[in-house]
Design a protein around this nucleic acid. Structure first.
Lengths: 213, 213
DNA sequence: CGAGCAAACTTTCCATTGAAAAGATCTTTT
DNA sequence: AAAAGATCTTTTCAATGGAAAGTTTGCTCG
């Protein structure tokens, strides 16, 4: 029977973890071929379930990508937290290569900027989807909540450096790291050593002492 | 006859300008619903031709988007040229709102950064596609050529400001304007007055006098 | 313990899509 | 005028997203 179906019903039925599995498979599928070529059916095959299983869990393709984006914003919020206040730097994902996080006493804002880039490069699928609202259900509550958490983490990063509410500087800092991450991911900038370069790039901004335009 | 076909054959057959028309319709379709929802068939209807007409001109969907991206890189190169050497500022597209280009004696690099953002906001469909290589035919010769022209224009902009070959600074400047444009286009940053803010943002970087990390 | 009930997943079906193949029409060249 | 080539159409097919209805599983309540 199972050889005909292509999957073992006793295992897949009430998988228990299918939602998480689908999200993970989605991320790796996007990382391989891009979000444009993501197919719900191929995803289902990849996870060893039937065509309609992903649709059941996420409603439709936009729902799937929305869930991925929400997960991404939470990962980003996590990656940006725990720098200054003794929490110790959390590296994205499982890797702990030391070198990237070792420079402990570099400028706090630079460290967080590097963390932003580090996240984008470690989770390219999440990052890509997070900033393509056309692909998402913008009215999704979970997405809004996760986005707000990430936004708060970003604001804190800037506020720690600049006491006054200098909105322009915050936007500039965000633009810098976001742009660098985007350019590297799109292949426009060759990343010999992306994180080292990111640190140098970020330092250009922080080196600006004044800030009044 | 024509009422049955849905188009006037005497007009559409050997349209003479169909390729350009299709590119323009593609740009506006993407601007409306995003590139993910772009349909070759809907595009054909929009242009008043049959299903296969777009495929004939561009090979396939990737070919269409590649042509759009190449056009975008040429528009960008044009937008970035003609600042310092007396050419006068060329505004993107047809609009000439004066205010955006009027501040003649602001820092040259800032002016070019603003031009970059101005282009991205004026041609969002081109800009979006230009930096999504997964959607394109990367081996396309026209794309490579146009991209190189734009790259050269960008390099000149930076080189005019910094004499020495400070690669990091160039990447930082590009990242800043590219990131700001991307964030505005994705809706992540609210553009009260996007260009004014862009100028302020860019000034943060230029205000950095030294540059050595 | 078993009957119902909701959750999780499957099967089937349909409209739309991208692309290939082959045909029709117009323009240009010779 | 005849041939050749460019431009556009018609037809066709496999793949896709999604809707609808059916089936299996686990849980709850009597």
């Amino acid at each position: 029977m199972e050889s005909l179906l292509g999957y073992d019903r006793s295992v897949t039925y009430h998988h228990g973890d299918l939602r998480r599995t689908l999200l993970a498979q989605t991320a790796s599928a996007i990382a391989e071929d891009g979000v444009a070529k993501l197919s719900m059916r191929a995803l289902a095959k990849r996870a060893g379930v039937s065509n309609a299983a992903p649709t059941y869990h996420f409603g439709d393709k936009a729902g799937l990508l929305t869930a991925l984006a929400a997960e991404g914003f939470d990962l980003l919020a996590e990656a940006m937290s725990g720098f200054g206040d003794g929490g110790g730097a959390h590296s994205v994902g499982d890797r702990r290569d030391g070198a990237a996080d070792a420079g402990g006493d570099e400028h706090g804002l630079v460290a967080r900027g590097v963390a932003y880039v580090e996240f984008a490069l470690a989770c390219p699928s999440h990052f890509t989807v997070m900033f393509q609202p056309r692909l998402l259900r913008e009215d999704d509550a979970d997405l809004a909540a996760a986005r707000q958490r990430a936004g708060a983490a970003l604001s804190v990063s800037v506020a720690e450096t600049r006491s006054g509410p200098d909105a322009d500087f915050g936007v500039a800092a965000w633009s810098l790291v976001h742009g660098y991450a985007t350019l590297v991911l799109s292949g426009a900038v060759e990343p010999e050593d992306a994180l080292k370069q990111a640190r140098a790039v970020a330092a250009h901004l922080v080196a600006d002492g004044g800030g009044t335009v």
